[in-house]
Design a protein around this nucleic acid. Structure first.
Lengths: 214, 214
DNA sequence: GGCGATATCAGGGTTTTCCCTTAGGAATGT
DNA sequence: ACATTCCTAAGGGAAAACCCTGATATCGCC
């Protein structure tokens, strides 16, 4: 029986080494490569063609979503599982759109991670339970709180931008992060603020806290 | 020969489990307890009286610095090593002031962590090399060379201003709020950011969360 | 096909922030 | 008395954000 071949993309070496031990304990899994930045991640993926890439979302050089997209493009048979410490992350949609097959929190139990790997290896999709929750509760879902007169729902992109604004990122930083122009960031920011009737950056921060984006 | 008894305080379960494996590989170390938040950390420390606490500085309920302070107060013989992914020396000063004996980055190699544990267990202090660098390179701190405490505490006014900045208020709003000029706000903001080695608004937000200002 | 929503980007003018330096008065410490 | 720190404030130029309008392409949908 062949072992599942796994590539670790994670810039924190200590966590990476720990993951290696954890995966080594599984009878049907092995770590075949490691990368400590986004560029190395897709290069390794191309070279090694692993079954699964365990990808930290926040990494130097190229973020997890971009690296995922690149990997899906270069070698579609390689599945990507995103790993993050942020609960209800605004990046969930981004990584799913980028082609990730799994989304696991660092707070999760090992079994959940192992589960995710098994599920994805079989061709399935694994989304962390608390993040699933956050997807359902997102303004995307127009059946939530239908009694309330609150305005139009935010688009995914708007949520991303607004959440980054709330976390103190400048327009320029957001533009780089999402690989779009500053002008587009301004538009998304203005539109989402108008939709939510938020009049200042402080109100954005407040709203973000309320929504659990922090 | 007795093994070094280690308590893991880390909210990311996956990293915690990984650390457990890594430490188990060392012949003279063992993990005697775990905590996934700051309050549990000092409670466990008090109950188990480990030799070393490996403490993530970003944790729920009570941050790493506060938990460290509490532990040092309750059981002074227990040494604390801070573990973090942040390079900013603001955190370093904070945890050292709180009584930590070590500071290790998650980006570091395992050997460095093991080194840190050994060194601290022998009564020494271990500071991550790149963080040491950042302290030495700080133009403010000529005291580092003299071995004096390097913490540049913020003044009350600076804390006020920086906290408002972190909460999304503009300079103008802060000026109105505190009945001072925008120029004064700019000065306080710049001075406090320099003291803490914070380079962007996002880092300010991050630090504010770390300090519980949010 | 047309409609609406989304996502992207631009121009142009105004306001604000950022970054640098300088500086005075008050309180505190040696 | 002198040094240091704190709070206050300002000038000036560069950069960025803010605010308006308008534009194009895509996609799902009736």
């Amino acid at each position: 029986m062949d072992k599942l071949r796994i590539l670790l993309a994670e810039d924190h070496r200590i966590l990476r080494e720990g993951l290696k031990r954890l995966i080594a304990e599984q009878p049907n899994m092995e770590v075949v490569g490691e990368a400590d930045n986004g560029v190395a991640a897709w290069q390794q993926a191309k070279e090694l063609e692993p079954d699964i890439v365990l990808m930290d979302i926040t990494m130097p050089r190229l973020n997890g979503a971009e690296a995922t997209e690149k990997i899906r493009e270069l070698c579609p048979q390689v599945k990507v599982i995103a790993l993050t410490g942020h609960r209800a992350s605004a990046y969930l949609n981004e990584v799913l759109k980028a082609g990730a097959s799994g989304y696991v929190l660092k707070q999760a139990a090992i079994d959940e991670l192992i589960d995710a790997i098994q599920t994805v290896a079989k061709g399935g999709t694994y989304i962390d339970s608390s993040s699933r929750e956050s997807l359902v509760n997102s303004p995307l879902d127009d059946r939530v709180y239908k009694g309330e007169p609150q305005g139009k729902p935010l688009s995914q992109r708007e949520i991303q931008v607004l959440s980054l604004v709330a976390n103190g990122y400048t327009n320029k930083e957001i533009a780089n992060e999402l690989s779009i122009s500053v002008k587009t960031v301004e538009t998304h920011k203005a539109n989402s603020m108008q939709k939510l009737d938020l009049k200042s950056r402080a109100e954005v921060v407040d709203y973000a806290r309320f929504r659990g984006w922090t």
